[in-house]
């Protein structure tokens, strides 16, 4: 199952909003996945345990440092817009984890 991580500065509000938005999107597109949210400070720990897609604000992207090859980082301008992150998530899933989309 794909693991998605929503990240924001303090890990309280924004990452939760992204998480709820992404959840709505993946459910509508029948993608099987697990979604977590956390702060930038905690993100490295999550990522080292294996995360496939990280979503965060473009303002924070540089703070993530280098990530393992498995992890795709989506630095977003508008965190509330599934038109921005949606196609990117679909693209990654179709290319790498086609088995996680149930028809």
């Amino acid at each position: 199952m794909i693991k998605i991580l929503a990240v924001c500065g303090n890990g309280m509000g924004t990452s939760l909003v992204i998480k709820l938005k992404v959840k709505k999107f993946v459910e509508a597109n029948n993608i099987k996945c697990q979604i977590d949210s956390c702060s930038l400070g905690q993100a490295k720990g999550f990522i080292s345990q294996g995360v496939d897609i990280v979503l965060l604000s473009s303002q924070l992207a540089s703070g993530l440092g280098t990530v393992p090859p498995r992890t795709h980082v989506l630095a977003l301008k508008n965190l509330m817009d599934d038109k921005e992150f949606g196609p990117k998530i679909l693209d990654i899933v179709e290319k790498n984890y086609p088995e996680d989309i149930s028809k």
């Binding site: 604000s57 303002q59 509330m80």
Partner: peptide, 11 residues
């Protein structure tokens, strides 16, 4: 929603 949602528009 949370104020930090605007930060991506003005990094």
């Amino acid at each position: 929603v949370d104020c930090a949602v605007t930060f991506g528009f003005s990094p």
